[in-house]
Design a protein around this nucleic acid. Structure first.
Lengths: 226, 226
DNA sequence: TTATAAATGATAGTATTACTATTATACTTC
DNA sequence: GAAGTATAATAGTAATACTATCATTTATAA
């Protein structure tokens, strides 16, 4: 279940590779945790530095600014999720079963895990739900895109889209459907938690309905022979 | 086509009603335009004040902070859109035709219109696409929600959801589907423009495919008898 | 082992942001 | 013409988003 690999992140996202030092890893882990706690707008490098017992200037040696750190963390999760999906569907031949597995993976909320040093999947999942779209909703989206900062998301989307095409090669909107399901998997969870009347899931504890919704949406859309 | 009514905005959103003075209307109109130009993060009341030839302090007499102004503008659009949809579907009895009309309205990009003093639909549409989710993706979402700042969005969603139920009373996720289509109508447009590989629309000039995608997604989901 | 470089800490500084406060002036309306 | 309201002008403050400098500690290579 736990894939044994190192997630590679676009080198333009950092000034100094945070994975390569104790302090860098603290910046990632505590940075993620502080963003979750304070919200991205209220989060600052100064607060983070205080939190991990270093100085603002030091944090700035790793990341140009807080948006780059956010993008790094989001990229980490997108890449992680792609591996997770590929790993868990690798031996499934039936396209339907495969897609169902993907929906399951997108719908389930990761369990707590505290392998101390590493970024936790659960926190990264939360981050994507709470702040994910802020990674691309900026006026520098084009420049970020040229730097390939969205490649992990595009790759993930492309994988999903391929599976859709495998299931029904004639479906005309596989990419849009993939990005829709990906986006919705997070935003419907957000709505469920904070604006439940925008959903049909109430404030339920389980994600069963959330999953049923996505699964139904997906399979109705790509249904064959109509 | 042009509905003749005044859009009422939640009074807690402002300190002084901006609709009631020349200056207030300038704050709205130029504020919207500046946010589009600079992006919400780079937008400040100081820049806005300079732009309309007043002082920062004066702008603060109308709005507590820039997020309230954003929420005001987004609320204005949600309310506008609700009226637009209700107005344009009022005399349609067939539920299918009605839903198709809604999709059409959600997919079409408003034309330029410069009735000088008033907020322009086109700009507000852009705002929703570029900054819309920042209205609710904050750590004060619960408090904002208690203040009913999201009521217009919920109302819009509820209307749409009712039409879905009218078409197929047995469909189990009308609210989620409504919010999904609403969200996607904007985010797929954003992707189309800035991250086209997340869609199947390329960098096309027309919104025809965008519309087909939404329509197909909607009607396949709520199809009867399966 | 020492020299050398690289990473971090300590400290300071700057322009801008996100406000609040005060006083003066102009504009309205009663 | 007085009284009130809206705006302008100005000032000030704490925090943000950085950049710069220099000293010190730590790792690495000769």
């Amino acid at each position: 279940m736990e894939p044994a690999f190192k997630i590679k992140i676009n080198r333009k996202l950092y000034l100094k590779d945070p994975e390569l030092s104790e302090l860098g890893r603290k910046i990632l882990k505590q940075g993620l945790s502080l963003i979750l706690q304070l919200g991205f707008e209220q989060f600052t490098f100064k607060k983070l530095a205080a939190d991990i017992g270093t100085t603002e200037a030091t944090v700035y040696r790793y990341f140009e600014n807080k948006h780059r750190l956010l993008t790094y963390l989001i990229n980490w999760y997108w890449t992680f999720l792609e591996y997770k999906i590929l790993f868990n569907t690798k031996n499934i031949n039936n396209p339907e079963t495969k897609l169902k597995k993907v929906i399951e993976l997108l719908s389930e909320e990761p369990k707590m895990q505290n392998k101390s040093d590493e970024l936790s999947e659960k926190s990264a999942y939360e981050l994507l739900m709470l702040e994910g779209s802020k990674a691309y909703l900026t006026r520098h989206v084009n420049s970020d895109n040229k730097h390939k900062f969205f490649k992990p998301y595009k790759d993930l989307c492309a994988d999903f889209s391929s599976m859709i095409k495998e299931y029904n090669p004639k479906y005309p909107f596989p990419q849009s459907l993939a990005s829709t399901i990906l986006e919705m998997s997070h935003s419907q969870k957000y709505f469920m938690k904070y604006l439940p009347s925008l959903t049909d899931f109430g404030k339920e504890k389980t994600n069963a309905k959330h999953r049923q919704f996505l699964e139904h949406l997906l399979f109705q859309a790509i249904k064959k022979n109509n």
